[in-house]
Design a binder for these strands. Structure first.
Lengths: 337, 337
DNA sequence: CTTGGCACTCGGGAACACAGAGTGCCAAGC
DNA sequence: GCTTGGCACTCTGTGTTCCCGAGTGCCAAG
């Protein structure tokens, strides 16, 4: 029982509400959009839409406001992603092109996205999972401590300080470094554990304690960082918007890495452009917010995800366009480097 | 003409106002603190304090509120830093002790400080200026690109990707790496430019273009990072407080590295525990906030600063105690590693 | 210098009225 | 059967008024 005109009405309601932030009434709708019907007809349609749960009125005798379900229908069937202007594209491209390393890429991306969408931007660091080992470095810091540095082909650098069981000399370290590099170079991070499983056995007995210590740190750092680093920017953009739920809760959620992580999507398909609307979100404290996220990564390998978080009442077509575009450009940049 | 009792009155006003967030009147003062005088006397004192600019009334016939000048006097002469409880000390110690690397130390510190003070915490990364070169690594990424990694004795790792003018082979890279390490190892970062100034001349002609490229990147990265990285946490704590000025401005300032940088203090004495109150702050948008900051660093070398930002109406003794304590513990941790 | 008394001043909250926007329903028209 | 104009009704938000109470400044007495 949802015919085309009712859908058009819903679309109009969403658009008007997003742009005015006020409940929209039948008369205003008839005026602003040329639906070709009278306010009375629209009222009838709205009554039906309300009954079906797509819209609601804050109180009797006020205009209608889209519900989460209404936004969902809008996003799924009534809107199309709005591409960016060419000026915006150029700006993105040149802004991202200046990045000097992976940290810089992520930093620039998150700022760019925040500025572009005027929302809070969230960017996950490229996953190590799909990376390969480029180089392993062991740097003696003192007699019994050394720094372990792992460099991946995605430009990521992992570092750990290792406390050694014994005093070791430079040569042993050099030897182990050579062996590690020989056996791990080019190896995918996920297969590192297998590769090094039997490594101690192939070493002279006196090197084994050292190797075991270092390898255990290596493994640990791989596991630890499996839940990946995430950064956000643009919190100031939250200040304007008024949430149904407290601003405090939103800010708190943003500082919880693990929450952010799940927000970006536990989807199996990393590359999808996903939208999570209001109550679809599992976290209380984020009920009034929506998340638009997309995967990025070089070529066919999706490395991680990025997106924005904003009030449920957001301009979905534009936001989705911006997120998708930024994801693509970041992918390009990463592919080129 | 500011005798002891007037100071006592000012102190009482600050304390009451901080704890109640309401303008404090003469009667309430006489009740809550036993100043040994009547409300009328207090009124006289308050009139004087107001005339001298230490307190103000939001409107006629309301209680008094400390001015920035009043807070300043309070901080300078009327309060003493409140030490933490031993439980808190223990919590700090064990929380910081678990850090695995420098990033982790900074991250834990900033979160700890935010939680402890219920304000926004700001921590500057240890400065490279006082660090020395521990190791330089050159990792070939492809034929014409290599990654340059600089490891310092403070555990900081700087990385840059370098585009090379020509295809270079592994041996040349190895050679240059050896030379770089030989001449830079243990050298203070500030003296790196001098050390490498004449390096190309001491190389065979064919290595010079490569060396020049890499060295220029090295220099660049030293300069670039001179304005140091800063992180913050606890933005959620801002949500409760109401600023005279918009929350938005504060959040915006927090995301500007360079602003944060200057907030922590351009003081020549890195180690000082400094307080900047309201309008003493050069930035519009941060008029309603105060900053309490302290230096930290191992031993006699102060490496950087950390602190918290909160509403002008904050509990200075407690906040100062927390900041000072955290600074000390971080210094300890860094000295030990 | 301190103190009690006293008149004065505002801000904030409660009570109230009212305009305006929007709705639901109904009966007439295409 | 859908659409439309008319109409009574229901709210919220806003503006007004009024009043209470906290707090002050001043003054004269101790």
């Amino acid at each position: 029982m949802v015919d085309d005109r009712k859908l058009a009405v819903l679309r109009a309601i969403v658009e008007d509400y997003v742009s005015t932030n006020e409940p929209v009434g039948s008369k205003a709708l008839a005026d602003r959009h040329n639906l070709g019907v009278s306010p009375a007809t629209i009222r009838n349609d709205m009554a039906v839409l309300e009954e079906q749960g797509y819209i609601a009125q804050p109180h009797t005798s006020a205009g209608r406001v889209p519900t989460d379900k209404g936004y969902r229908l809008f996003v799924d069937r009534l809107s199309q992603v709005k591409p960016l202007s060419s000026a915006e594209r150029k700006a993105i491209e040149s802004f991202l092109a200046g990045a000097v390393d992976i940290d810089d890429v992520v930093m620039r991306t998150v700022r760019l996205l925040a500025q572009l969408t005027r929302q809070v931007a969230v960017v996950q660091y490229p996953m190590l999972t799909h990376s390969t080992v480029r180089h392993v470095e062991l740097v003696p810091l003192s007699e019994r401590r050394l720094m372990f540095v792992l460099i991946t082909n995605t430009g990521r650098v992992e570092q750990r300080v290792v406390e050694l069981p014994d005093v070791v000399d430079e040569q042993r370290v050099a030897h182990l470094r050579a062996i590690l590099n020989a056996s791990l170079d080019g190896c995918g991070l996920t297969s590192v554990p297998d590769k090094i499983a039997d490594l101690p056995e192939r070493l002279p007995t006196e090197d084994r304690p050292l190797a075991a210590t270092i390898l255990s740190v290596l493994l640990e750092s791989l596991v630890d960082r499996h839940d990946e680093k995430i950064v956000f920017a643009g919190a100031a953009n939250l200040a304007g918007a008024d949430f149904t739920v407290g601003l405090r809760d939103v800010l708190e959620a943003l500082e919880e890495q693990v929450v952010l992580m799940r927000l970006l999507g536990e989807t199996s398909d990393l590359s999808a452009l996903t939208v999570r609307i209001g109550s679809e979100n599992p976290y209380t404290g984020l009920q009034g917010t929506s998340i638009v996220a997309a995967g990025y990564g070089s070529g066919d390998k999706q490395l991680a995800r990025l997106g924005v978080l904003g009030p449920t009442r957001m301009d979905y077509p534009v936001t989705m366009g911006a997120v998708r575009a930024v994801a693509r450009y970041v992918s390009q940049i990463l592919a080129a480097s």
